[in-house]
Structures are given as C-alpha cells and as structure tokens.
Design a protein around this nucleic acid. Structure first.
Lengths: 336, 336
DNA sequence: TTGAAAGCGCTAACAA
DNA sequence: TTGTTAGCGCTTTCAA
C-alpha cells in the first residue's frame, strides 16, 4: 500500500462539506438532507473511501473483532468439529459486522492469549470453545468481566452467569440408539470416553436411556476409553468377543473408525454384519465406505446463536441471555 | 469490561516518569537507564498494562493483523488442507507478532472482502490461498499494491511479482508412483482432475514421469474427473474393467476414497488386492482402515515460509523475495 | 441540518 | 537519558 487511502477529510473536501457531515453520512445518514447525503455518498464512492478502522476503534472503544483460540490441528483422529465451527462463525459474524480473530494457545499458560487481547482491547469479545477441560478460561474471563460466549454448557460451575450455546449430546446418542433399535438391534454396545469427561457421560446417558426405555440391559455392553482410533479398535474387539453386540454407538467418529478397523481385521462389513454409529458427522464419516452413520451437531445454528448472544452482550445496555441448547440430528449412512 | 484498562498515562504517573518514557520502555527499552526501566516495568506489571491496539495502530499505521479468506466448509469430501493450514498459520504468525483475521467470501463479488479490509487498513497484509481459481485476487491485489503472499504459485501470470509459496505436486505423485513401482506394481492407474486444472495436470505429470522413467505405458490408465467421491468411484470401476490396474494414484484423498468405495463394492481389499494412494494426507487418510497412503504437504513449513515472506514485505524497506517451492513427503499406510 | 472543537491512546520528531 | 509537542483519523459533544 504505497499511497495511503482517502480519509474523511478528503471526502469532505471533494463534497464541499465538513468532516463531521461525512461522518454523519456514514453513521447517521438520516441526519443529512437528501441532496447533501447524495453528494457525500457520490464522493465516498468516487474516492473509494472506507473509514479507517484504527481511528474508529480508538474513538468508539470497539474493534468489531471476535477472538477465538484454536489449538493445533488434530491429526490421527476424525475430530474436526472446531474447524467446521470456525467456518460457520466467520460466515455468521460477517453478517453481524464482525470479523474473527484467531489466536493460538500458549501451552503452559492457557490464559495468556486472552489476557493480552483483552488488555489491549484488541477484540470486543471472545468465543470460548474448549469448555470440556473444566473450562478455567470461563471463570477467568468472568472474573475480569470480559464479554464472552461459550460453545459448551458450564458443566460444573452452575453459578456462572455467562451466556452459552450447546448441543444436547444425550439427545443425539438417544436418536442413534433408537435408530438401531428400530432396525431390530437389541445388543447395542457403547464405546465412550473416560468417566471424568462430562460430555462423554452425557452422551453415554442417551444410550442407556434408549436401551432401558425398551427394557434392554446395558451391562457388559459399555466401554470407556481414550478418544483414539486404537482405543476404539481394541474396545470393539474386546466387546465383540465378550458381549457379541450387533451394533455399536460411539461417543465420537474417531472411536467409530476404530470399530471399522476391527471389522476389517475380522473380515466383517459395517452395515452388513454389524452396525456402527459415530458422533460429529465428520468428513471421515461422510466419505468412508460404506458411509458412517453419525450424530450431527447443528454447527451453523450454534454459530447463529453464539453471534446473537454476542450481540446482546455488546449492546448498550448489555443484554445477557441464558443458555441455549440445540438438538442434533442423525445423518444415516451405509454403516447402519 | 466495565472498567477501562490502564493507559500509558497511568503507568507514567505511577512510575513518576513521562508518558514517552513508558512508551520507550515498551518499544525501545535500550534507550532507558536500567533503573528507570526497572521502575517502569514494575509499574507496567503491577497495573497489568498492555498498549491499546487501536491507538498504536492508528499511530503506526499498522495492525499486526494478517487477513485470510476462508470459504464454506467442504463437506462430503476429504479436503481439509486449508483448515490444517490455518492452524499452522495462526501458530507461526503468533511467533512473528501477528494475529490472523479470518473473513468470509462474498459469493458473487470475490474481491469485496479484500477491498474493504484494505481500504480501512484493518489488516497489514493478506494470505491468498485459492490460487487454483485462476486467481483473480492476486492480480487485483497486485494492482492495488496491497501486500500479500500467495500459497500457490502464479500458474499463468508469469510476470507477476508477488511472493508465493507452493508445494511441488508433481514431485509428490512421482514419489507415490515410485513407491508403488518399487513394490512391484506395473499397471498403475491415475485418477485426477479435469484438464483445465493446472494443479491437477501438474500432479498428473509426476505420475507419467515416474512411469515413463521405467519404460511403462500410461495409455488407457488415466482418468480425469470432478473432485468428488462418486467420480472417483465411477472412474476406478471403469478403469478396473478396462485396464486391470493393480494400483491407483489419485490427485486427492477424496478421489482415493472413491476408489475405496469401488473396492468395497467388489469385495476387494485395499492394500491386499489393490494399492491406493491419495493426496493431502487428510484426517480421512489417517483414520480410514487400513490407512490410506497419501502425499503429505508440509503445511507447517508452508506457514513458516509464508510468514517469512510477509515479514519481508512489511519490513522497511520492503524485501520482496521470490517464490519458494517445497517438497512433499509420502505418508505410507496400509493401502499400499 | 451543518460545522467547530475536543480528545480517544499512542508514538515520531525534536528539544532539553 | 528523559520530556515536550504534535498529530494519526475518527466520532462525540455542543454551538450555529
């Protein structure tokens, strides 16, 4: 950018008005007489004027930027929910006049990135996504009265008063399990995460609920492991031997892919011999043969609700809504 | 943020120095006497001071923000290169003192997002990634003398003078083909993109080169289709019938997954009966049974080179380097 | 309905 | 080595 862009003053001079009138033309067009407005707008157009962000931000004490932290890319798993969410968030934010600023985590000091952006007033608000870690960020931000919306409910901190948006995981696995039950399966196994994962236990509860509803036992049909391919593979191999299930419901697509590994090892075919359902409707679920049935989180809708909450938070006076819970759907494919 | 963060003046008062001295303590600490510096730093620490970005941006005419456009999430494919790249870019930018600002494309006016951010001096530079579209953005930005680095070489515009970073696709497919040749395969088929894709033709050339090098024919062994699962599926079915290949090299993991679909349809097993190699080392390649061998772009390294070029571009005086070509590697898995 | 003055918080240039 | 002055481009009073 060798030559600096036009300023308010340039537009004002060309249109033969004062700078404030140009500012009004941009921010409060109703205040101008129609002919003045037209003249100013013509000049804005001709000069290709756009208000300088830094100056505007300084004056209005707002950046129209939403900060979101992203961790390193997850390789060797099927997990890409946050990547998909980022796309939706960027899209939705644009419609609300916001851009998304991405920042990296600092391994041993999770709050560092937040603190700096907050104190330097670089962003207006945050979207916090990693609530499953016990969410130290949320309470930290709350203490500092920083505006933020969480994607994920406040599992333990019931007294927290920040807005959040989440997807009902139990409803998703219940949907999945019912789908299998309706297909005639009775021995449906669960492969989920370790007990200290609130999200994992929530998703598991949907499976038990659907099973018990039909009077079916769940004992011996469940496994709790790490969220990796190999764990899913081992757990499914073990369950097949010990409990002879005809179907698997998994807490993640990653675990479900582990099951597909086991099926291949044993020359079984997902969808023909054994049904498998994953969670997240990742690209992996969409393209793996014969297609992995999976619970799909409505991320576009999550983004819409997050931005809505953000707008409330940043309004004058702030309008703090409560939590929003969304319901997932089931993407049915060949594996069931 | 109910109470506004401390300013330079607050720190100055507490430390008993002028505002300028505080500014120097932050930006040119060498200029201060050690004891003054220590006193100022103590105050900065105590007050939790961080320079206001808007004010600094206004004054220095820089935002320390890098703009990157992302399109909607690609579903139904294995393609997620850009998502992975974003992670690396965010990480690398941080080390260089930059944040990444994401913006959405505006369907029918691809330049709109760029123009606005440029004129409002919201970002210091862009990273342009969608060079495969014939890259109207690149020449558009070049005309406006906007600083940007492209991830992707300037295929047609040979006179373009902007820095770029790219990965040698032909070298990747050559690596893949040689790997198969070394395993004893002789009838190796190619499934790639339509002829108008420069990237597709480049990747194809690596396959032909490796084949011809060993004196093997390629006639009848190639197919050019859309980048979708179903195209890959149909193309591979057709090739299996017409040319009886023992291996497939594909221009993308998406196409390779199409091949896996065909193999499943025919009760063949990738890796046992037929070898398959994809391109991009997506999550899909990493988790699908029995593992999809795939060409891996060194995206972390791409990010490093992109940021390096960006720093040159934004230096005073600007230091415009030439293009940088990186070499991919082959992630070998069960499918070969 | 339009214009003048002030100042957001910072840093570059210069003076002491 | 430190302090003073000015001004980046904008919007918010307030006056005309």
């Amino acid at each position: 950018m060798s030559v600096s862009p036009p300023t308010l003053a340039d537009v004002a001079e060309r249109a033969g008005v004062s700078r404030q009138t140009v500012s009004n033309a941009v921010n409060n067009p109703d205040l101008l007489r129609p002919d003045t407005l037209a003249r100013v707008q013509e000049s804005i157009e001709a000069l290709g004027y756009s208000p300088n962000r830094a100056a505007r931000n300084l004056r209005t004490r707002a950046s129209h930027l939403i900060g979101m932290r992203i961790g390193p890319a997850q390789e060797g798993t099927a997990n890409a929910t946050m990547d998909r969410f980022v796309h939706s968030l960027v899209e939705t934010s644009r419609e609300a006049g916001y851009h998304v600023l991405l920042f990296a985590g600092d391994g041993h000091d999770p709050e560092a990135g937040y603190a700096d952006l907050l104190r330097s007033t670089a962003v207006d608000a945050f979207v916090v996504t990693d609530t499953y870690l016990g969410n130290p960020q949320a309470s930290w931000l709350e203490e500092r009265r920083a505006p933020f919306v969480a994607f994920g409910r406040p599992w333990e901190a019931l007294n927290s008063r920040h807005p959040w948006v989440d997807v009902d995981g139990a409803a998703g696995t219940e949907l999945a399990t019912r789908h299998l039950l309706d297909k005639g399966h009775e021995r449906i196994a669960w492969i989920g995460w370790r007990k200290d994962s609130r999200i994992g236990e929530d998703r598991r509860s949907g499976w038990t609920r659907a099973m018990h509803e039909r009077g079916l036992p769940t004992t011996g049909l469940a496994s709790r492991v790490e969220d990796t391919i190999s764990s899913g593979r081992e757990a499914s191999a073990h369950l097949l031997d010990s409990a002879r299930p005809s179907a698997f419901v998994c807490a993640s697509d990653t675990l479900a892919m582990g099951v597909l590994h086991t099926l291949r090892d044993r020359h079984l075919r997902a969808g023909d011999n054994i049904a498998v359902i994953g969670f997240d409707d990742s690209q992996v679920a969409q393209v793996v043969p014969p297609g992995l049935t999976s619970v799909r989180q409505p991320l576009e809708q999550v983004a819409v609700e997050v931005v809505k909450a953000l707008e409330g938070l940043l309004a004058h006076p702030p309008l703090v809504g409560t939590g929003v819970m969304l319901t997932p759907t089931l993407a049915v494919r060949g594996s069931s």
